[in-house]
Structure formats: structure tokens, C-alpha cells
Design a protein around this nucleic acid. Structure first.
Length: 270
DNA sequence: ATGGTAGTTTCACTA
């Protein structure tokens, strides 16, 4: 049976991480790679490195030094309008058609430290972006299927998505306001959180470990910030394919000069 | 309650 592998990875500077990308691609061979935090302008993107690895098709939405998203693909890419979704017009969103599927690559703001939109404009921005994404993606899913949403959502919604639910309740990424916003999006009914559909709680799932913990592997204070959601047209196929269709490549967090995020993959039967 | 690290726009800011 034919399968298509889609990967999402907050690479935290693509220019600094080309070697790690080569390693990941050699190990996993994804058909589509959604990158976040490329931290460069489109002209600065290491196109030739990805072309040499067999990825001639790319769509890059970048800005100078910060944020930035890119889709790198073995299959032809048709670029779709970005619809100016980010309230601050930062390089945090792109969508393309690949093989009849709409792929939305999403980098939701981290949101600062104070989880109060009244005093912290970055947290307000995060909540506003979430509200827009919910409305937009839900409408698109009712117009066009299948859709895959992938990216760094900067929210770990479930208790088993963080190393300590109690200790993170007031820490941005796991606060009730953000979790409710993400749940409202799911409850609109068009999308399935693939990781938790295939691997239910209480099994912990983490995709990110802070750089600020030198002994990150031993302490394992991780969070599941990176997500792949599929629209209803893909849900049954994903559920049937079993838990091995979803993977978090934690070994990439353990290499020299790693990103603080591990790549995540989903294999889709076609 | 604090500080810890990493990256780029750097003696400052985001994550």
C-alpha cells in the first residue's frame, strides 16, 4: 500500500540546522516536511541542500531573523493564499496543495510569560491568532477536504502532554485559557488531534524539552507543543493505521546542536 | 522565588 509521510519540525534556525535536517531526512525520508522558526528570509533559505536531498518543491514564508515557516516537498506544491491570518502579519502561516491535500503549516506565538491578555500583549496575540485559526481552518474544512494542519502550536493541551499538570497550570503553554481555545477549535468538529487519537492518555507524549535544562533527558520535563491534526476525510484512514503511524523523533533532540523541538511524523495510507 | 540556554534583530529581544 502507498503511504505518504508528513513531518513537522520547529527547527529553530534552518541555516544553523542543515546537518540535522540531512540526518533526519536520511533516517525518516518524509515526503513533506513542514518547518517552523526558520529564522530567515526566503532568499536565505538553504534551497540547494534540500534540492540535493530530493526535495525540489518548496514554499517559504520568511522574515528577517525571527519566526518563519517553510514547506519542503518531494511532490509538486501548489501555493495557496495565506489570507493574512496572523494578527501581527508575522511569518507564521502558510498553506499549499500537495497531491489533492491542503496542508496548513502553523507557528502559533509562544505568548510571553504572563498568562493574562490584559497585561501581556503577546498572550493576547496568541489568543487572537487561535480564534482566527479556528474560524479559518473550520471553514476551509467544510469547503475542501482533506486538510492536514501541522506545526508548533505552542500549547500542550492534555494533562499527559506535560511533565507536571499541576506545576504548569499557570505556565504559558498549558494554561486553561489556551487549552480551552484549542479545545473549542477541536469541538468545532472538523479536526482530529492525531497523536491522542492514536495514543490515548495517560501515556505521556512530549515533543519539546527546554534548552534551559542541561540534563533534559534525565529530568524529562517535556511538553507536547507540536501537533498534526487531520480533517474528517482522513480520520478513518489514520485511525486504522495504528499507533506506529505516529512518531516523535526524540533522538534528534539528543544530537549535537539540536533544536529544542523533536520532529514529529505521520504516515498516511493513500 | 529564581534562573537556567539558545538564536538573531545583539550590550536587547524572542523563545
Amino acid at each position: 500500500m502507498n503511504t505518504l509521510t508528513i513531518a513537522t519540525w520547529n527547527i529553530n534556525s534552518v541555516r544553523l540546522r542543515v546537518r540535522q535536517a540531512v540526518t533526519f531526512i536520511g533516517k525518516v525520508n518524509p515526503d513533506i516536511l513542514c518547518l517552523q522558526e526558520i529564522k530567515c528570509l526566503p532568499d536565505q533559505f538553504p534551497r540547494t541542500d534540500f534540492e540535493a536531498l530530493g526535495y525540489p518543491h518548496m514554499h517559504i514564508v520568511g522574515q528577517k531573523g525571527l519566526h518563519g515557516v517553510a514547506i519542503v516537498s518531494r511532490l509538486p506544491v501548489q501555493v495557496l493564499d495565506q489570507d493574512r491570518l496572523c494578527p501581527r502579519a508575522e511569518a507564521r502561516f502558510q498553506r499549499v496543495l500537495i497531491g489533492g491535500m491542503e496542508i496548513q503549516n502553523i507557528y502559533i506565538p509562544a505568548g510571553g510569560d504572563e498568562p493574562d491578555p490584559e497585561v501581556n500583549p503577546r498572550f493576547a496575540h496568541k489568543l487572537e491568532f487561535l480564534a482566527r485559526l479556528k474560524t479559518y481552518a473550520t471553514r476551509r474544512a467544510r469547503e475542501h477536504t482533506p486538510i492536514i494542519l501541522a506545526g508548533d502550536f505552542n500549547i500542550a493541551p492534555r494533562e499527559a502532554d506535560v511533565w507536571s499538570h499541576k506545576q504548569l497550570l499557570k505556565v504559558v503553554s498549558h494554561t486553561p485559557a489556551e487549552v480551552q481555545a484549542l479545545d473549542a477549535w477541536l469541538e468545532a468538529g472538523e479536526f482530529t488531534d492525531v497523536a491522542r487519537a492514536l495514543i490515548p492518555e495517560p501515556e505521556p507524549l512530549f515533543t519539546w524539552w527546554s534548552y534551559r535544562n542541561r540534563n533534559w533527558k534525565a529530568s524529562n520535563r517535556g511538553r507536547r507543543l507540536d501537533h498534526i491534526w487531520v480533517s474528517s476525510a482522513l480520520k478513518d484512514a489514520v485511525l486504522k493505521s495504528g499507533r506506529n503511524a505516529y512518531a516523535i523523533w526524540k533522538e534528534m533532540r539528543d544530537r549535537e546542536k539540536p533544536s529544542d523541538h523533536a520532529p514529529v511524523t505521520l504516515q498516511i495510507r493513500r
